[in-house]
Simulated scan of single mutants.
Amino acid sequence: MASGVKTRLEADRKIRRGLALGKYAPFHRGHQLVIETALAEMDEVVVLIYDAPDVTDIPLPVRARWLRELYPALQVIEAWEGPTQVGYTDDIMRAHERYIIDTLGISGITHFYSSEPYGDHISRALGAVDRQVDPTRIKVPISASRIRPHPFRYRDYLDPLVYRDLITKVAVLGAPSTGKTTLCERLAQQFHTLWMPEYGREYWAQHQINRRLSAEQLVDIAEGHLAREEALLLQADHYLFTDTNALTTAQFARHYHGAIPPQLAALADQAATRYDLTLVCAADIPYEDTWDRSGDMQRRAFQQQIIADLKQREIPFTLLQGTVEARAAQVAEILRHFRKYRNPPQPKENVVA
C-alpha cells in the first residue's frame, strides 16, 4: 500500500477513546483491571474520579494521585461537584449523565469501561460501547466496600502506593533515654501492628569511631531509616509507630558538626510533613547512663532542642509524661479520636512543652 493511502486511512480511523469512572475509595486490583484493559484497547483513556466525603476520608487529590502515578498515560479528571446519590432511578441516572456530558463537557467517547450495571445507561447516553470488565468479580473477587473496614486483611488487593497511604504514621521523638523504644514496642503490641526501631542506634553500633559518626554517615542513617520505614508501612496494620526520624538526626548533625548537610536537611524537611501524628517522650524518667550516651545534662539540652525545632517548624505535637503505662494510655486516647485525613493536626494551643 502506498504511504499516502496508508496515511489517509490512519487519519480517517476514528480515535478509540475510553472512559472509566469511580470513587476509587480505595483504588484496588479490580479497578486496575478495568483501567489496564482500557489502556490496552484504546488510543486514549479518560478516568473521572469523584469526590466522596460521604464514603471515604481519603481526599480526592490523594486518590487522583494514585491514578496519575500508576498510569501516567491516563487523563484524570477530578469531579468535585458530581452527584452523590447512587442508584438506578430515572432522576439519579439522568443527573449523572448530565454531569458527565453537560457539566464536564466530556465527549468523543467510543467505549465506556466499568464492571457495574451503570455501564448500560452511561454508555447509551455517551453513544459508546458498554465495555464490561469482569462484572462477576471472578478475576478479582474484591470490592472497595469490603476493603475499607479491613485494609490490612485485603492488602494483597492494593498496590503498595495505595496501601502505604492508608496507614497512620506516628512519629515518636525525644532525646536519648526518654523511653521512645519501650513505648513504641508497647504500642505495637497494644495495637497489633509494627513499629520502626531507631536505625541510627544499629548503624552507630556498627560504624562509630570513638563514639562519633561523620556528617556523611548521619545522612546514611536518615536514608536507611526512611527506606526501612517505607518497607514496614506495607506490613503494618492501621498504624506504624516510628522511633525517631530525620528531624532528630539533623539535630545530631548540628550538635556534633556545627551544620546540617544539605541532603540531611532535605530529609528533615520531608519528615516535617510526613507523619500524621507527632509524639514527644518527656525527659521525666530516670536517665539510663550507658556508654553510648552523653549524660543527663546533655539529654535535657537535646530535649529542649528537639522541642524548639518542632515549634519552629510549626509541627503540632503532644508531650507524653509518666510511666510507660500512662504514656500508652494517653496515646490510646489520642488514637481513639483520631482519623487519618479527617482530623486536623493536634491544635497548637493543646501542645504541652
Rank of each mutant, 00 (worst) to 15 (best):
P286Y: 00
G108Y: 09
P286S: 01
V351P: 12
I315T: 12
P176K: 00
A231V: 08
D120M: 13
L218P: 12
G322E: 01
D284R: 05
A328N: 07
R293H: 01
A40Y: 00
F27R: 09
P83R: 04
A326F: 04
G179E: 04
E44Y: 06
L240R: 01
Y199N: 13
V170L: 03
T323C: 00
I315M: 02
M297G: 12
I167K: 07
E78F: 02
I142L: 14
D54N: 15
H150S: 15
Y113P: 03
Q235W: 05
T323P: 06
Q190E: 13
A353Q: 14
L213S: 10
A282V: 11
V324R: 03
L226K: 10
L310K: 06
Q32V: 06
D269E: 10
K340F: 07
W66M: 05
Y118W: 03
R339M: 10
A11T: 08
I92E: 03
V352Q: 14
G295Y: 03
N210P: 00
L74G: 10
A64M: 03
T242L: 12
M42F: 02
A79E: 12
R339H: 13
H207M: 05
K340M: 11
H337P: 10
I285H: 14
I221M: 05
P347I: 01
T178P: 11
A79M: 02
A353W: 15
Q270T: 14
E97N: 14
E230L: 08
T103K: 14
H28S: 07
Y199K: 07
G22A: 00
L74Q: 02
D156Q: 10
A205Y: 09
L232E: 15
Q75G: 11
A301K: 15
A128R: 04
L233V: 07
A25I: 08
D243M: 04
A144D: 12
W66G: 04
S177M: 03
R131F: 09
Q330D: 07
E202I: 13
R137W: 05
F252P: 09
Q32R: 14
I100N: 05
A271M: 02
F27L: 09
D296Y: 15
L234A: 04
D292E: 15
V55F: 15
S294L: 09
P26Q: 08
F317K: 08
E44H: 11
Q305D: 10
L70D: 00
P160Y: 01
Q85E: 07
W204G: 13
T103E: 07
L104E: 00
D284I: 08
T193D: 01
Q270V: 06
Q217K: 06
G18E: 07
S107F: 06
Y256C: 13
V324D: 04
T193Q: 04
L70E: 12
A353C: 15
G322R: 02
M196S: 13
I307A: 01
P83G: 08
P262C: 04
V47C: 11
E97F: 05
Q189N: 09
R65S: 12
A231G: 07
A40E: 10
R146L: 15
V162N: 11
H121P: 05
Y71K: 08
A236P: 12
A308F: 03
A175K: 14
E36F: 01
R327L: 01
D269S: 11
L320G: 01
P117Y: 11
E69T: 02
E349P: 06
A259H: 09
A25Y: 12
A253M: 04
D120T: 14
Q251H: 13
A125K: 06
T182V: 12
F191G: 08
Q85H: 10
Q321K: 10
R313C: 00
